[in-house]
């Protein structure tokens, strides 16, 4: 039996790595990958607590989250394409027109 703390620590680590990527990178594609990491951190928790409660709800839900991640990536890639066209690149720090 692995105590839940370890799962939580793992998921927190994955989540923070995702955030680290978001904060330090400027490439939109890398942003998408980081977001995937963060989503999967949540999935780890879902699966871990599914086992913890002796219930498959968490695992089923993880499947849906994966599907949702796929949808998100699809839309995200579309947005990145538009970004590329409008700003001649995928550097997110160039797209600053929607401010004050």
């Amino acid at each position: 039996m692995v105590p839940p703390q370890y799962y939580l620590l793992l998921s927190a680590a994955v989540f923070c790595i995702g955030i680290f990527g978001l904060l330090t990178r400027r490439n939109a594609l890398l942003f998408l990958m980081s977001v995937e990491l963060m989503l999967n951190a949540a999935n780890i928790n879902l699966v871990a607590f599914s086992y913890y409660w002796g219930n498959v709800t968490g695992q089923t839900f993880t499947l849906f989250t994966l599907a949702l991640a796929a949808a998100e990536v699809a839309v995200g890639l579309g947005i990145i394409l538009v970004l590329y066209r409008n700003f001649d690149g995928v550097d997110v720090t160039n797209a600053t027109t929607m401010r004050w």
Binding site: P3, P4, Q5, A12, A13, C16, Y52, W53, G54
Partner: peptide, 26 residues
């Protein structure tokens, strides 16, 4: 800026390590 992520991890880790859970049902 990544230091912010590290800080978040530290906070979460401290909280998780300090938390206590009953035995999992499995």
């Amino acid at each position: 800026p990544g230091l912010a992520a590290v800080a978040l991890f530290v906070v979460m880790a401290v909280v998780f390590v300090g938390a206590s859970f009953p035995n999992p049902q499995g």
